[in-house]
Simulated assay, not measured.
Amino acid sequence: MTLRPLGATTARYSNDWYILPCDVPTGTFAAIQRLAVTDVFGARRWITPAGAGAEHDWQQWSMYVHGDAPGLLLPPGTPKVADGPALEEVQLARDENANMVWGIEQTVRMPTGDPRPGAEAAAETLAFRRRLRPPTRLDDSRAALAYRVMSLVPEHWIPFIPVHVPGDNRSVQLQRAPLTGTRLTAAYNRTRTRTGQVIVWLTVRRDTGRGGRSSGLAFDLLTDTTPQ
């Protein structure tokens, strides 16, 4: 296609660059076929692309090129997107004390589809399990100290462990990652196109988390059994 600037076009000079503004419709692939420049002496010159030289030319240079078709792709966009509340949110955090990675469910989706704080859902799940299987009571002859194999971890903290290397039953693989953590969020989005059509879609985003977290996980504990 041949692009023609709307109205009079004024070239702007900045740091050895000349910028010629030109309006391009959205959803098109724009390529400049001809560009003529007339200097102050009245001489007219045809300007060719910088990357049109031979492949072995050391001065060959290009910008905004898509493969073998030089040009600029301007995909269709939306003027504004409305983000809905998070339906699911999981934070992947590294626990330095326990030397583990935890998937913390900040927001979970209920069977009705509504979001719910992960801590509240975890507390209800734990209370339901205790009603089904109440904890056993010990008699008064117990010792002053009790041994515990490990401490409890919040119900909505999901542990992540190393996995074996594919094809190897002994070696495990670890992936180096930043210590800032990762947050995964699922939410609905809504927008209106330039033609007035309403579009709704579900997105899953990966953002930077809040850093390391401590679960309080510990092993081989001695707890005081004296009534407080």
Rank of each mutant, 00 (worst) to 15 (best):
151 S>R: 00
92 L>G: 06
132 L>Q: 14
86 A>T: 10
89 E>M: 12
56 H>A: 13
54 A>H: 07
77 G>L: 07
152 L>F: 05
48 T>C: 00
153 V>R: 10
133 R>C: 10
156 H>K: 02
51 G>H: 09
148 R>L: 14
56 H>K: 08
105 E>F: 13
114 D>E: 11
51 G>C: 04
75 P>C: 10
149 V>N: 01
139 D>I: 05
129 R>W: 12
155 E>Y: 13
136 T>G: 15
110 M>K: 13
108 V>T: 12
76 P>H: 07
152 L>P: 01
137 R>S: 05
121 A>I: 03
74 L>A: 10
87 L>F: 03
47 I>L: 11
43 A>V: 08
85 P>I: 12
111 P>G: 11
58 W>K: 08
84 G>I: 14
83 D>N: 11
104 I>G: 04
121 A>E: 08
107 T>K: 05
97 N>Q: 15
116 R>Q: 15
55 E>I: 13
102 W>F: 10
146 A>W: 06
56 H>T: 14
112 T>I: 02
145 L>V: 06
147 Y>E: 00
44 R>A: 12
63 M>S: 14
117 P>M: 01
59 Q>T: 14
108 V>I: 14
82 A>H: 12
110 M>Y: 01
95 D>L: 00
104 I>T: 06
77 G>C: 08
136 T>P: 04
108 V>E: 06
87 L>V: 03
85 P>R: 14
110 M>D: 14
152 L>Q: 13
132 L>G: 06
131 R>A: 08
109 R>V: 07
100 M>Y: 02
58 W>E: 10
148 R>K: 00
75 P>K: 02
100 M>A: 14
131 R>H: 04
45 R>F: 09
47 I>R: 05
